[in-house]
Structures are given as structure tokens and as C-alpha cells.
Simulated assay, not measured.
Amino acid sequence: MRILLSSDPELPVPPKLYGGIERIVDLLATGLQIRGHSVGLVAHPDSTSKVTQFFPWRGKRSQNIFDTIQNIIFLWSLVPKAQPDLN
């Protein structure tokens, strides 16, 4: 199965320090790949999670309207290209 995960644009996956959700996203991606799934990840550019495909967010600030719009457009255009079974 092809799965596309997305994470907050402000923290890398896995996080270097604190980042509870980002740590869970990394564990989920790892577990899904162990089970034979193809996993794509949309996350902070400094992310080091071992995934099949990695797509860095363009905007890095979730509270900035311009970065948010840029990320919405990026994700909207990415989904047809990545062709995930789940997203």
C-alpha cells in the first residue's frame, strides 16, 4: 500500500529535542515500512526519517499565512503525483 503522511512544517521528523507528534509520525512511518508499505512523508526539510519518499515543506512556519498557503498548494499538487492509497 502507498501511504502519504504529513507532519508539522516547524519540527523535523524525528525531532532533535522535544516533538511528541513528530516522534510518533517517525515510529508510524518505520512500522508501516516494516510491514511492507511504501511510505511518503511531507515534513520539515531537516527530517531524517527513513521513508520511501520524502517531500520537504516549502513554508516552515505554521503560523504564517503565506507559508500556510504555500504548503496547501504544495500538498494539493503533491497528492496526485504521489498517488497514495491513504493520505
Rank of each mutant, 00 (worst) to 15 (best):
R2L: 14
I3Q: 01
I3E: 09
L4K: 08
S6W: 00
S7K: 12
S7W: 05
D8A: 12
D8L: 14
P9R: 12
E10P: 01
E10D: 05
E10N: 11
L11Y: 00
P12Q: 15
P12T: 03
P14T: 05
P14C: 13
P15F: 10
P15W: 06
P15Q: 15
K16S: 09
L17Q: 11
L17N: 08
G19L: 14
G20M: 07
G20Q: 12
I21H: 08
V25K: 06
D26F: 09
D26E: 13
D26N: 03
L28A: 12
A29P: 01
A29K: 13
T30Y: 06
T30Q: 09
T30S: 14
T30M: 10
T30P: 01
G31L: 10
L32G: 05
I34Q: 15
G36F: 06
H37L: 10
S38W: 02
V39I: 02
V39L: 13
V39Y: 05
G40C: 08
G40I: 03
L41K: 04
V42W: 00
H44W: 05
D46C: 09
D46G: 11
S47T: 03
S47V: 03
S47D: 07
S49C: 09
S49V: 00
V51G: 06
T52R: 07
T52S: 14
Q53W: 05
Q53M: 11
F54T: 00
P56M: 11
W57M: 00
W57D: 02
W57F: 10
R58E: 14
G59D: 08
G59C: 06
S62A: 14
S62G: 07
Q63C: 06
Q63Y: 05
Q63D: 11
Q63N: 08
N64Q: 11
N71P: 00
I72C: 11
I73A: 06
W76N: 12
W76G: 05
L78W: 01
L78K: 04
V79L: 10
V79A: 08
V79I: 13
V79W: 04
P80F: 13
P80G: 15
K81S: 13
A82K: 02
Q83G: 07
Q83R: 13
P84N: 15
L86G: 05
L86P: 02
N87H: 09
N87Y: 09
